[in-house]
């Protein structure tokens, strides 16, 4: 390499044997000393002021962030709680509505049953009374038929007894008697 400076400038030539200024041992002691001093001063000052300050900032930030995170977590939990409450309420009201519906249905069914029973009872009663009336009428008719039959028997017997009849006369008499009875029966029935 090129080192013209040393040759020409006496000041530098005196300080070393040439070559790189870095190899000039006469400067070593002072540079060694000041390197140590300035580096150790830097180390001390960094350690004393800068590192705690940055750690403080980083810690504070971390705390803020974790605080925010836990806040968010809490809020989320709260929201979930609210949602759960709401859903429970919803479920409750649905149940209530169902209950009400079931009650109404039951009542309606009861009412219907009741009405049906009453109707049935009424019908039964009507049927009963009608049956009774029919029965009565029947009995009355039978009674009357009995009376008519007796009358017929009496008349027939009277006629039989009063004269002997021919076959044609007998037939005529029976027909007469029947028609008489019929008219009596229809009269009685009416």
């Amino acid at each position: 390499m090129i080192s013209v400076a040393h040759a020409s400038e006496g000041a530098h030539a005196a300080s070393g044997g040439g070559g790189l200024p870095q190899f000039d041992a006469s400067t070593f002691s002072s540079q060694f000393f000041w390197t140590l001093v300035s580096f150790l001063a830097l180390l001390f000052l960094l350690n004393k002021y800068v590192i705690p300050a940055i750690n403080r900032v980083l810690d504070a930030r971390e705390k803020t962030i974790s605080g925010d995170l836990s806040n968010a977590e809490n809020m989320k939990k709260e929201a979930q709680q609210v949602l759960a409450d709401y859903q429970a309420k919803l479920r409750d009201s649905a149940k209530k509505a169902e209950q009400t519906l079931a009650d109404a249905q039951k009542e309606a069914a009861q009412n219907r049953e009741q009405a049906l029973k009453e109707l049935n009872a009424e019908l039964q009663k009507k049927q009963d009374s009608a049956t009774e009336a029919i029965e009565q009428a029947k009995r009355k008719a039978i009674e009357e038929v009995k009376v008519v039959a007796a009358d017929l028997a009496i008349i027939t017997t009277q006629k039989l007894i009063s004269k002997s009849v021919t076959k044609t006369e007998a037939n005529k008499m029976v027909t007469e008697a029947i028609s008489e009875m019929e008219s009596a029966g229809s009269k009685a029935l009416n």
């Binding site: 040439g18 070559g19 790189l20 190899f23």
Partner: peptide
């Protein structure tokens, strides 16, 4: 090493 040679040459 080149620098050292340079220094020795003088």
């Amino acid at each position: 090493i080149a620098f050292i040679i340079m220094g020795q040459a003088g």
